[in-house]
Amino acid sequence: MDNLKEDLKKQIIEQLNLEDITPADIADDALLFNDSGLGLDSIDALELIVLLEKYHGIQVTNPDEGKDAFKTINTMAAYVQKRKG
């Protein structure tokens, strides 16, 4: 699980082109879409859907599903584990 979280952080940085941010800067429970967290926006959310497909083979067909899943690194990791079953 910790490995997965670490991978997700690296993948988010890569996929979203987050300059000057390292995995260590992203807390597991930081709100990704909040300005106090990473400050991501609606297009970034769609880019995270691309990330899930590209790196984890998970297809998200309803973007609303992403809203809950992409809250934090913790929720994202849980979502990936659940979908991979």
């Binding site: 979203l16 082109n17 297009i43 769609l46 880019e47 691309v50 497909e53 590209k54």
Partner: peptide, 11 residues
């Protein structure tokens, strides 16, 4: 070449 159409590039 990179897996899927990127929404953040498309916009």
């Amino acid at each position: 070449h990179n897996g899927a159409p990127s929404p953040s590039l498309f916009v």
